[in-house]
Nucleic acid binder design. Structure first.
Lengths: 123, 123
DNA sequence: TGTATGCGATACCGTTTGGTTACACAAATA
DNA sequence: TATTTGTGTAACCAAACGGTATCGCATACA
């Protein structure tokens, strides 16, 4: 079970993405994490190990319990890789979006975003 | 070789990420793509197939050649998934901000935060 | 027409993945 | 002290992965 271990490979598995989601709310010990899934506890333990190996979560030992905490800054690597291609899928609609943005700004000029909205972001 | 086939799994392989990079510059036929790698042509063919199956590239047949074109808008799925966690790694102030948001929510429960805070989620 | 090219498809192979059951063991609890 | 709880680990398994070599077959070209 030793191999290439990077963030891209770590988030490829849907169960691991769910674990990340869970832990983004609050740290949990391993059994608590496992309680949210159908699969066995050792299976989750392996996923946790993988996530730990690539730095997406850290373990804090506390007595016999091991609390897992999300370290989501490692996702920045994925973000940067993806974002370099954003221009390939936003370009066409940029004009429209700009128009909509300005419309919104005119209507509600007071609304502060405070969220680094990452400008273009279409679904 | 049939299985789960989604964008996350597709970009997990470094060779496939390189193929995406190549094709983001211009469409190329399959042999041209394969020419950029050490591995054999059938191996690249398989990668191309996987990328096609999850919509990251499209094939345009032209005589006996098959031109591969990147359809990077499919990366939006990855982008959206990652970006929902951005607040966990961008600025340290974000934690404070989240805290303040929740405080505000408690004080004025009517004010919608638009941040899906999602406390607990145990089953 | 004969030959070279571009590529799919198949068969095969070793390794990795994601899962299981079973056991071991320290820490917490009764 | 006896027992429950939280977890690691080992052994095992089927399937998927990433690769290869090879054959076949249109299409293009000499």
């Amino acid at each position: 079970m030793e191999a290439r271990r990077d963030v891209f490979q770590a988030i490829a598995d849907p169960t691991r993405r769910e674990i990340i989601s869970l832990l983004s709310f609050q740290p949990m010990n391993l059994n608590a994490v496992a309680g949210n899934f159908e699969v066995s506890r050792p299976a989750i333990s392996k996923h946790i190990k993988i996530l730990t190996e690539c730095g997406l979560i850290t373990i804090r030992q506390e007595g016999r319990e091991r609390f897992c905490e999300a370290r989501l800054d490692k996702l920045n690597e994925v973000s940067e890789w993806v974002e370099q291609y954003r221009k390939f899928w936003t370009e066409k609609l940029d004009a429209l979006e700009l128009y909509l943005d300005e419309l919104q700004t005119q209507n509600k000029p007071k609304q502060k975003t405070k969220k680094h909205v990452n400008k273009k972001r279409r679904s």
